[in-house]
Simulated scan of single mutants.
Amino acid sequence: MLRRLYDWTMSLAARKSAEVWLAIIAFVESSIFLVPADVLFLPMALARPQKAWRYALIATVASVLGGIAGWYLGHYAYEALAKPILAFYGKLEAFEQLKNSVGYETLVLLLVTSGLAHLPPIKVVTILSGAANINLGVFIVSAIIARGARFYLIAWLLRRYGEGIRHFIEKRLGLLAGIVAAVLIVIFVGYRLFI
């Protein structure tokens, strides 16, 4: 099923309505969808490199708006809607443990790392942020920085290196973003220990 979903998402890049689909997928990825917007963003930006910045903007704005929807889902509809969604993905138990064990600063850090590297998945963190009452303004600023950094970095790489960088992005961008996320976590832990 996941492979069919991936293939369907990839097929959207060739359509005239690709920008609309990019916005829709970036939006729903941030709250409920399984496939990341990168799957559509990459082929679109490779097919039309002159529009890579535009696609990054569309993906960032839609992703942040989807994150806000996830925040509202967690804040106002956790019991009725968020719990069943998390249960569907098999993430409810992990979510409950995370919700009970993280503080405000840790949630902001998770928001940044999930926006950059999908660690943990962005949909989990957006719902968690709402359920844990993270300030919506802080949430939005963090989401803009993290998601914008991810999409604009990919756009820059694709414009600079073209098709040659695609394999690297598809195979190693997650690892690279994970390393950046790990560095942020180490800085955060060091800050908490020494300040």
Rank of each mutant, 00 (worst) to 15 (best):
P43Q: 02
G130E: 13
G130V: 13
P43G: 02
K171C: 04
L158N: 00
R4S: 09
P36T: 04
L34E: 03
A59C: 12
Y78A: 01
R3M: 12
T113K: 06
K91R: 09
R166D: 09
T60Q: 09
S31Y: 15
S142N: 05
Q50G: 02
R150S: 04
R3L: 13
A155I: 02
A82K: 01
A37C: 06
L40F: 02
A26Y: 01
R160W: 10
A94E: 15
L107P: 04
V61K: 03
K99R: 12
A23P: 04
P84A: 00
I185P: 03
V20H: 07
I179V: 15
W156T: 09
R54N: 01
G90S: 06
A59L: 10
R3P: 02
V64M: 13
I179M: 09
L46A: 00
G90E: 09
G190L: 14
A77W: 13
Y89T: 06
R54A: 03
F33M: 01
N135G: 08
R4N: 08
Y78K: 01
N100Y: 05
Y55F: 15
P43F: 02
E96K: 10
R15M: 11
I24A: 02
L116Q: 10
A23D: 09
A62H: 04
V141Y: 11
L136E: 11
E79Q: 13
R3Q: 13
G130A: 11
N135A: 12
E170M: 06
I32L: 14
G174L: 08
M10C: 10
E19K: 01
I145D: 07
L98C: 08
P120C: 03
M10R: 12
A62D: 05
M44P: 06
W71Q: 07
F33L: 02
A146M: 10
G130K: 09
W53A: 13
L73Y: 10
I185K: 01
M44K: 06
V35D: 04
S129Y: 05
L184G: 11
V102L: 10
A52V: 05
G74Y: 00
V28D: 11
S11H: 11
E79W: 08
F41Y: 11
L2E: 08
R160Q: 08
G66K: 10
F88P: 00
W156L: 14
G70I: 03
Y6C: 00
Y76H: 12
T9Y: 03
L98Q: 09
V124M: 05
A18L: 02
T113V: 14
V20P: 02
D38I: 13
K171H: 12
K91I: 08
I140F: 13
S114K: 03
V28N: 09
A13D: 08
V20S: 09
G67P: 07
W8A: 07
Y104N: 08
V138E: 12
A94M: 15
I134R: 04
K99Y: 13
Q97L: 14
E105P: 02
M1I: 07
L111F: 08
F27H: 07
R159F: 07
R15K: 13
I145L: 15
Y89F: 15
I68A: 10
L111E: 04
A69N: 05
V28S: 15
P120K: 01
F139S: 03
I144G: 08
V39P: 06
P84W: 00
S101N: 14
L157I: 15
I187A: 15
